Simulated scan of single mutants.
Amino acid sequence: MTPRVLLDRAEIPNGGGELRLFQRGHEFSIMLGSNELMNSRLSGSEEALATLPCERLSDRTAPRLLIGGLGMGFTLRAALPLLSAKAEIIVAELVPAVVQWARGPMAEIFDGSLDDPRVTVETTDVFDLITHNNAHYDAILLDVDNGPDGITHAPNDRLYSIAGLKTAQKALRPGGILAVWSSAPDAKFTRKLADVGFSVEETPVRARGKRGAHHMIWLATRR
Rank of each mutant, 00 (worst) to 15 (best):
M1N: 15
P3H: 11
R4E: 15
V5Q: 15
L7G: 13
D8P: 15
E11R: 12
E11S: 13
E11H: 10
E11A: 14
I12H: 04
N14L: 10
E18G: 05
E18H: 02
L19T: 01
L19V: 04
R20E: 15
R24H: 11
R24E: 15
H26G: 13
E27G: 13
F28C: 14
F28N: 12
I30H: 05
M31N: 11
L32C: 03
G33M: 05
S34Y: 00
S34V: 03
S34A: 07
N35I: 07
N35Y: 04
M38W: 05
S40M: 11
G44S: 09
S45K: 04
E46I: 07
E47M: 12
A48G: 06
L49Y: 10
A50F: 04
L57N: 03
L57Q: 01
S58E: 08
R60G: 01
I67H: 14
L70K: 10
G73E: 06
F74P: 13
R77V: 06
P81L: 07
P81S: 09
L82A: 11
A85N: 10
A87K: 02
I89P: 07
I90Y: 04
V91G: 04
A92H: 11
V95M: 06
V95T: 08
P96A: 08
V98S: 04
Q100V: 14
A102K: 08
A102F: 03
R103T: 14
G104I: 12
G104Q: 14
A107H: 10
D111F: 02
G112M: 02
S113A: 15
S113M: 07
P117I: 01
V119T: 05
T123A: 08
T123P: 06
V126Y: 01
F127T: 06
F127M: 13
D128I: 08
D128C: 08
T131N: 09
N134I: 00
I140P: 00
I140D: 01
L141G: 08
L142F: 04
P148R: 02
I151D: 05
I151N: 06
T152K: 00
N156G: 03
D157H: 06
L159F: 07
L159C: 03
I162F: 06
G164H: 06
A168L: 02
A171C: 06
L172Y: 00
L172A: 00
R173W: 00
G175C: 10
A179M: 10
A179Y: 08
A179I: 03
V180R: 11
S183Q: 07
P185K: 01
P185L: 01
A187R: 11
A187P: 01
T190C: 03
R191N: 08
K192E: 05
K192W: 03
D195Y: 00
V196H: 10
G197K: 12
V200T: 09
E201H: 04
E202H: 10
E202K: 13
T203H: 14
A207D: 13
G209N: 12
K210H: 11
G212T: 09
H215G: 06
M216T: 10
I217L: 14
A220M: 03
R222N: 09
